[in-house]
Design a binder for these strands. Structure first.
Lengths: 158, 158
DNA sequence: CCACTAGGTTCCATTTTAGAACTAACTTGA
DNA sequence: TCAAGTTAGTTCTAAAATGGAACCTAGTGG
């Protein structure tokens, strides 16, 4: 299976990863959430080659995860901003960061700590049920075939 | 910057991605959560080359995200099981899946739907504050320098 | 005029990957 | 007993992706 075919699988994880399942894209998005907007800033912050960076930014714009907006004319310059679709990736980044904080801190504690403006406490993120609000235990979540998988099956072997 | 150096950055997202920020590893872990345990099942389910699969499984075992356990002797065969560290990746997979369900369903609806055994409702996952339990809005989370970043800075330029 | 900034693009050597074929150590059925 | 099947890999090679340096374009500041 080639990477380019992965987005056709009837799996939301595979489809999401077809866009940012590579070395650098999620680091670019992490930077977006901490306020980085310009080409050179991304490059210095992340340390990837300009070549790759240009490529990834273009891809993110194509997928409408970032939007290019001019911030000056003469010479015309753009900055990259998260769209709604991009902001929606916040839970992915935060759960990744929490896992890294827990398992990869090298004994030094988390690189960043977070405060919740609403309740003013130092916080971490938790995964909760949209219906009862309780914290999720993986064993208590039962996956069932949904409409997307049914539609796919009927197309593949009708 | 080479990929091999990424895990040394003082960033939990980068460190986490140094293990599974590639094309296939998160798909292997997704399969683990739906009960896949054996080499051939992974290969058929995901469609990556046997070569890559062997490589990724070895890496996941080295990082103690999976554990190899014999399920028969003569010939000796192992299966791969999630460790505690691996199970802790559940929120990452579920938030990825939710994003894919929302933005990449191709109009067919989600491939899988989930029921919460505890409350018996069809559910999605939400990101909540560990302290006040309210749903997280990215704008209300304030990151501050933590001990991990301080320790790193004092090592790099003391 | 010269250096500098910002945002790329081009080129090429090195790395990584995909896919097919091969191996090893058994088990099963005819 | 012997061929075929199962499971879990490993080896090989061509093709694709990557990293890094140099170059380009369109300005600004001195």
């Amino acid at each position: 299976m080639k990477w380019d075919n992965i987005q056709e699988l009837p799996c939301s994880v595979a489809r999401a990863l077809s866009i940012f399942g590579d070395r650098w894209t999620l680091l670019i998005l992490r930077d977006c959430f901490i306020g980085v907007k310009r080409f050179d800033k991304f490059q210095k912050s992340i340390g990837l080659s300009r070549h790759r960076l240009a490529d990834r930014l273009t891809k993110l714009v194509e997928h409408e995860i970032l939007r290019k907006e001019p911030y000056q004319e003469k010479p015309l310059r753009y900055e990259y901003k998260l769209t709604r679709k991009g902001v929606d990736l916040y839970p992915v980044l935060m759960t990744l960061a929490k896992w890294g904080d827990t398992w990869m801190d090298g004994g030094d504690g988390p690189p960043l700590e977070y405060t919740h403006a609403k309740c003013q406490h130092k916080m971490t993120v938790e995964l909760c049920c949209s219906e009862c609000g309780e914290e999720i235990n993986p064993k208590e979540v039962i996956p069932k075939v949904g409409p997307g998988l049914k539609a796919y099956s009927s197309r593949v072997k009708p």
